[in-house]
Design a binder for these strands. Structure first.
Lengths: 193, 193
DNA sequence: TTTTTTGTTGATTGACGCGTCAATAAACTT
DNA sequence: AAGTTTATTGACGCGTCAATCAACAAAAAA
């Protein structure tokens, strides 16, 4: 009994199922049938809405990055000072949400995907530019001309800390990651004076 | 025309071919036939020497990490001072060898593999402990008790910088990566005084 | 010399996956 | 009422792939 206007619903369900299955498997080795089943439809329908599996992956990637972007924006709008802005970004980057199996699987696999799929690389570049720009808004009042260099380091440090927390055995410790990032920042800023 | 003592030769050829193909494809989506062909033998022989594809991946991973370990050791034995030790590690981490397609593909995909294959996770943990320990030898004379914390940050920063250099479009700039790491170090050490 | 061990492969198996297509049916349009 | 668009799926073609096996070749051991 086909109801009209299913497209957005189906697409969203497929995107979420894609992310879930990637997280579950830990790799991009998921079948369209798996995804479709999880989303409650036939694989043919999945192909109807997204032309190919790759399109599903890219849509999932956009979704993950959109969510992360929204989290950061949400945290930023409460920030009152430059330092609070940076703290907000750190908190969002190491939030529990980002350490869920699905998010972890998504990020790690998107890094891999970026190697062979230009569009995936483009999306990652967008994410990095946004993060950098957000950091700079907070850093410029604190560090002036050195803000650029500090932002470069801090951005990389965030990714590296994330990677470490995610790959170590045992539950990730976001507090520790934030502390290290804070220490980096403190050292770089103190140098200013 | 079977010659004796082929096992080590075949295994090495397969390991190198595995790394090459992963780098070429940019993913773990390589077939045993591809690998075997590249290594100049039939896929059946590949299965004969390694029981399964996963074993090939793990052997390849060990190989990549062994190479990297050797590079670091080689650079370290020339180091005369604590600071030179750290510089040596940085140079090795961002060496041209590590930015080859094959090395990049290997590292990124091993991070993904670690999600689902415990042995892969274990190997990565070994690598991280070794890096940390190497850093500490250099850091302790310079930073005393704070060495541990600095090593944690520096280790993560190295991974993060590597990731950034690798994922950006255009050729990687190892000089830039080393500069950022050096700046981090300088800031953390100056704080001491 | 016979036997065993080691090296090697073509062919095969059994399974699985992506993407397509024809067919069905409900909802809108005219 | 007839036609069009949207939603939906079962079946399937065509290809792929990991792993196995039987069989053959050459060196080593007995």
């Amino acid at each position: 009994m086909p109801k009209l206007g299913m497209e957005p619903i189906r697409r969203e369900a497929l995107v979420k199922a894609t992310i879930f299955e990637i997280g579950q498997t830990g790799s991009l080795d998921v079948t369209v049938s798996q995804i479709a089943k999880r989303a409650g439809m036939s694989s043919a329908l999945a192909h109807h809405y997204f032309g190919s599996k790759e399109e599903m992956f890219l849509a999932a990637m956009r979704h993950v990055m959109t969510i992360y972007g929204a989290e950061v924006r949400g945290a930023l709008c409460l920030a009152q000072s430059p330092l609070e802005r940076i703290e907000a970004i750190l908190a969002a980057s190491f939030s529990a949400a980002n350490f869920r199996r699905e998010a972890v699987g998504a990020w790690l696999n998107f890094w891999v995907l970026a190697q062979s799929v230009p569009e995936a690389k483009r999306l990652l570049a967008v994410y990095q530019r946004r993060l950098r720009s957000n950091l700079l808004v907070g850093l410029r009042p604190l560090a002036g001309e050195e803000a650029e260099a500090i932002a470069t380091g801090l951005g990389a440090l965030i990714d590296g800390l994330y990677l470490r927390e995610v790959l170590k055995s045992g539950p990730p410790d976001s507090g520790a990651a934030v502390s290290v990032a804070r220490a980096y920042l403190a050292a770089q800023l103190r140098e200013k004076v």
